[in-house]
């Protein structure tokens, strides 16, 4: 039965599933990458995702306007990001713990709003699959790469954009310098607070979008705690990727593909206990990182708040 794993159906299936599963991780982890590159660890991603997911779902359900739904999710994520920025930048709050606070707040508030505004699990018409002309007709590959929802394409387009912004623009240089040496950046006239406000808000916005990609892109449903730890995995993937967008993409794909693989292992009836199969993506992510013996250094000022000497 193990040989069944190598059939075309299964390989195509794994790739297609992996690409879909990686979508929310990409949005959230790329956003988190910007934050961490500027020296801010945000553990509240999961809460921002949940609020974004609910906001998008609710608007889509009530208005049917998917563009508006995405906009509202972005807005909600941005507001959560701004709050996080205020707390960590202005109030110098410990980043890890305030993130946990925002996570709990988002978890609770999204559930509360869900109960009071909807009351029951419903489905919504989300973004349809968009076939890219010609390319989607390629056998096998077409289905994998060119027949997905627009929010899936967006996540993958975000990777080169993020890479470009971080590495090839002045803004990216400022972000990196604030994350490495805020004192030096400050003395060169870069507004440390401004840059961090920008990155944290961007992170929140993208987390909101990550939530929307679940509730109106991939699943078209909202349920309490529907992210179920996804936001924390996204934060972990930033470390896996060594704070580089392409690395994050690699990590997200690896984790998602292995997850898709374990689903197939069960479907094909390969005799591994289900719990052990479910462990696989987590174990392999660690093992790959061990094997690659990465020497990437974290941004020096990560988790450290900055205060100008008076």
């Amino acid at each position: 039965m193990i040989s069944d794993l190598f059939s075309v159906t299964v390989l195509v299936g794994i790739l297609a599933s992996g690409i879909r599963l990686a979508t929310p991780y990409l949005y959230a982890a790329i956003g988190e990458t910007f934050g961490q590159r500027s020296g801010v660890l945000n553990l509240g991603v999961e809460g921002q995702m949940l609020l974004g997911a609910f906001a998008a779902f609710y608007v889509a359900l009530k208005t049917g306007n998917l563009g508006l739904a995405v906009f509202v999710a972005l807005l909600v994520g941005a507001v959560m990001g701004l709050a996080m920025a205020f707390v960590t930048v202005n109030l110098h709050a410990q980043q890890g713990i305030s993130g946990i606070g925002f996570y709990l707040f988002g978890l609770g508030l999204s559930d509360l709003l869900f109960q009071k505004m909807l009351g029951t699990v419903e489905t919504v018409k989300g973004f349809p699959k968009v076939d890219i002309p010609f390319l989607s007709d390629i056998p096998g590959l077409g289905e994998i790469f060119f027949s997905q929802s627009i929010l899936v394409y967006g996540a993958y387009l975000l990777v080169p954009v993020a890479w470009f912004v971080l590495n090839k623009t002045t803004l990216g240089l400022k972000i990196r310098s604030v994350g490495e040496n805020p004192e030096a950046a400050d003395s060169l006239g870069v507004s440390v607070a401004g840059i961090r406000y920008f990155t944290i808000t961007l992170g929140g916005t993208l987390s909101g979008l990550a939530g929307a990609s679940l509730s109106i892109g991939l699943l078209n449903v909202f349920q309490q705690n529907m992210t179920s730890g996804l936001g924390f995995i996204a934060v972990a993937l930033v470390y896996f990727g060594g704070w580089r967008p392409w690395g994050v993409l690699g990590g997200a794909l690896l984790f998602s593909m292995v997850n898709a693989l374990q689903l197939w292992i069960q479907v094909l009836g390969i005799p591994i206990p289900s719990d052990i199969a479910v462990m696989m993506p987590y174990v392999l992510t660690i093992l790959v990182l061990v094997a690659s013996v990465s020497r990437v250094r974290a941004p020096s000022a990560l988790t450290k708040s900055f205060e100008r000497d008076e």
């Binding site: 110098h92 305030s98 606070g101 925002f102 709990l104 707040f105 559930d111 109960q115």
Partner: peptide
């Protein structure tokens, strides 16, 4: 709803950690 309690706990955490600045 228990969800309110979760949100409230989150607020408490955020507020407490934010109050640190005055102590510092």
């Amino acid at each position: 709803p228990s969800a309110l309690i979760t949100a409230l706990n989150g607020l408490v955490v955020v507020f407490v950690v934010s109050s640190e600045i005055w102590r510092q």
